[in-house]
Design a binder for these strands. Structure first.
Lengths: 210, 210
DNA sequence: TGTACATCAGTGAACGCGCGTTCACTGATGTAC
DNA sequence: TGTACATCAGTGAACGCGCGTTCACTGATGTAC
């Protein structure tokens, strides 16, 4: 996906003054928190990146290929964020609350990668949706493991832990999508609400296991 | 919203051979289960309805106004479906299972109104999203009432019933959106999974109430 | 009953616009000799 | 060190297309007289 991402000089040729990364950045800044990638025009992206429209073809076959690269980048970035978030989790702080905080933090982050990701999972072409779905399943697996670890430490068992993880993941993403369209003042309330919902799911999975 | 919906003859004039309803129907058939209303062009809709492009203006100010009418219609239709579904609920059949069945039935229905509704709630303009959000809150209220009724009959109490209703609603819509992009063979599995998730939420709300 | 008229859905032609895409070209670079 | 050359990102001009929108027009109808 990123064979051409580095400014490699293999042999000869005029060096790139614009590269794929810059076009991707231009695309991300253009879509902002509310537009969909599929509404971007080639000329618009080229304009934002400061190149002639036809120069776009030096980097991508078409806008679909660029959109795939953008989603790829967003997925990578989000995986990295999740990894980082896991290191914030400590015995003192609830995993659920910490994760939600990180999630909402990222919703408002300047790079806008999480909003982009949430959006393309529901709008966007088949290919985008598949990319997002793959990431979601990755999160679900991680969360399943995390749930089992915590619960077994507490000597609890869970009913269908994969389903519980799936419910939590989908719910959080749904609430996150809602948050995109509500003012930031309402976000703390949204977080506490979502945390309560997650607690219901976990409590229910415990209860049904008995 | 539907002042001109009937073929009223007030005074005089050439009678309509095409009306708003036909344009709305054309729009619905064009978007199908996967396209978004916002990608429809005026000319495309006019073509599908068999009128000249400029005739479109006899019925709607622009495509946005038509889209609003489409969502309005979808909302009305879905409210009607919900009402009908409630009559299928009996002491013998679980409310949760019955509702999910109706929901999935509508996902595959020919008119495609529910898919349209799910889609515009996440894609689509601000105005569409507000329309969908309003319907969602309506569902949540209904479900809260339903939950309280059933649980009090069972001598149970619930922790934050509104939140439980909200979690269930959002989860069902999220799973429904997923179902739109998966083959029908996988739908039975999706239904049983979603039913289990709903049971977790209800069980959790019961447990946390103690 | 007959006629003039207002109403109004629908029309064909035309407009300017942004779009994706193509073409032949430029010119800076690293490499081979 | 100098020169010829292959490479390749970037360019300006041009294309045909579908779009939203406007204009002046048509013609079927119900109503007033």
């Amino acid at each position: 996906m990123s064979a051409n991402a580095e400014n490699v000089s293999t042999g000869a040729g005029r060096p790139q003054t614009t590269n794929r990364e810059e076009l991707i950045a231009a695309a991300i800044s253009l879509v902002g928190p509310h537009r969909s990638l599929s509404t971007l025009s080639l000329r618009e992206v080229a304009r934002a990146a400061g190149i002639a429209p036809n120069s776009f073809y030096r980097h991508f076959r078409d806008t679909d290929e660029m959109a795939a690269a953008v989603i790829d980048e967003a997925g990578t970035a989000i995986r990295h964020i999740v990894k980082e978030a896991r290191q914030r989790i400590s015995p003192q702080r609830s995993m659920v609350v910490t994760s939600m905080e990180v999630f909402m933090e990222q919703l408002g982050a300047d790079d806008g990668l999480l909003p982009l990701f949430l959006r393309e999972g529901t709008a966007g072409s088949e290919a985008y949706k598949r990319a997002v779905e793959a990431q979601l399943q990755f999160f679900e697996q991680e969360l399943t493991g995390e749930l089992l670890r915590v619960q077994s430490a507490l000597k609890n068992t869970l009913y269908e832990p994969e389903l519980a993880a799936r419910a939590i993941t989908r719910l959080v993403f749904a609430m996150g999508t809602t948050a995109l369209d509500t003012p930031p003042e309402s976000h703390p309330q949204l977080i506490t609400d979502t945390v309560k919902m997650i607690r219901m799911i976990i409590a229910g999975a415990q209860k049904l296991a008995v």
